[in-house]
Design a protein around this nucleic acid. Structure first.
Length: 288
DNA sequence: AAGAGGCCCTGATAGC
DNA sequence: TGCTATCAGGGCCTCT
């Protein structure tokens, strides 16, 4: 599920529901996540007030009242479910992104507040939760990441100097979090469609004009996706509730063999595997 | 140093 | 129906 827009939508939901609330209890069912959950995770979190909920790239950061930070990532298959307490029971709050019916399996962590529960579900366990003891360590943890597309640091100078002496194709770079943070496999294809750039084009061949397009369209695609509530694909079976809507706007992703959506374009969407990730593009308007 | 490839893990789906 | 193979929204590590 989660690229930057989906994570941002989760952040917004959490911000509405748990900011200024105090953790009453933590339930840990499985510590074997991508990074092993520290043994003292529950004791650190307990009685902490959530001061602020930030996001950087695909990471969410909970600012805790004691000065520590809880950073988490949803990996490929992680979802956050928000349950509200009604009388004695917690029930699903379907008005928030990705909180339809709670799956029965893989609910690894529960963060319980007085009247609300936040549940982290993740079948593949590529996600993780970490505690950072202070802002210095938090900063250090995120220091190797490139800027988000929205940041002014993501500009023409930055991109062209980054691309010097580089051999890889542009699709690979959009996925490279050291270059730019937050773009994943879906939005990389979508962004290149708007730029009319072939995903296998080597970055040293890109013209100034094209680099500008990459900046503009990275921002445009992500902003749009956030507005639409993110994308929901391959949703859990037998669930209902609020999903993202951006998947309806996909121009190329998962559209192999279909007609290009660009007006008066005769092209067909092709799928090509680039370093093990499916990549979609129009054979006509993204020829070069 | 940059780039390719493997690996972590479960579940859905396609093909036989 | 039931097997096996393939693929999936990410990112880290190792090897060359």
């Amino acid at each position: 599920m989660p690229e930057l827009p989906e994570v941002e939508v989760v952040r917004q939901s959490l911000d509405k529901k748990i900011r200024r609330k105090t953790v009453k209890k933590i339930i840990v069912r499985n510590r074997n996540l991508r990074i092993k959950l520290p043994k003292n995770f529950a004791s650190i979190m307990k009685n902490q007030k959530i001061i602020k909920i930030d996001r950087f790239s695909k990471y969410i950061i909970l600012h805790l009242s004691g000065g520590k930070f809880c950073l988490f990532h949803l990996g490929m298959s992680g979802t956050i479910h928000i349950l509200l307490k009604k009388k004695k029971n917690f029930i699903t709050n379907s008005s928030f992104y990705n909180t339809p019916i709670l799956p029965k399996k893989h609910n690894h962590i529960e963060i319980i507040f007085k009247d609300i529960k936040v549940i982290y579900n993740d079948p593949r366990r590529f996600g993780f939760f970490q505690i950072l003891d202070n802002s210095f360590l938090l900063k250090k943890r995120l220091s190797h990441f490139g800027p988000e597309p929205f940041q002014s640091k993501f500009n023409l100078n930055y991109i062209s100097s980054f691309f010097k002496k580089k051999q890889k194709n542009i699709k690979n770079f959009l996925l490279d979090q050291n270059f730019v943070s937050g773009i994943g496999n879906i939005y990389a294809s979508e962004i290149l469609f708007f730029c009319k750039i072939n995903p296998i084009k080597e970055v040293h061949l890109l013209q100034k004009k094209e680099l500008k397009k990459i900046i503009i369209n990275s921002r445009r695609v992500l902003v749009n996706a956030i507005k639409k509530g993110g994308s929901t694909i391959r949703d859990f079976k037998n669930t209902s509730g609020k999903k993202g809507n951006f998947q309806k706007d996909f121009k190329v992703y998962d559209r192999e063999g279909l007609r290009c959506k660009r007006k008066s374009c005769e092209g067909i969407i092709l799928k090509k595997v680039i370093t093990n990730r499916s990549t979609f593009f129009c054979n006509y308007c993204q020829k070069n």
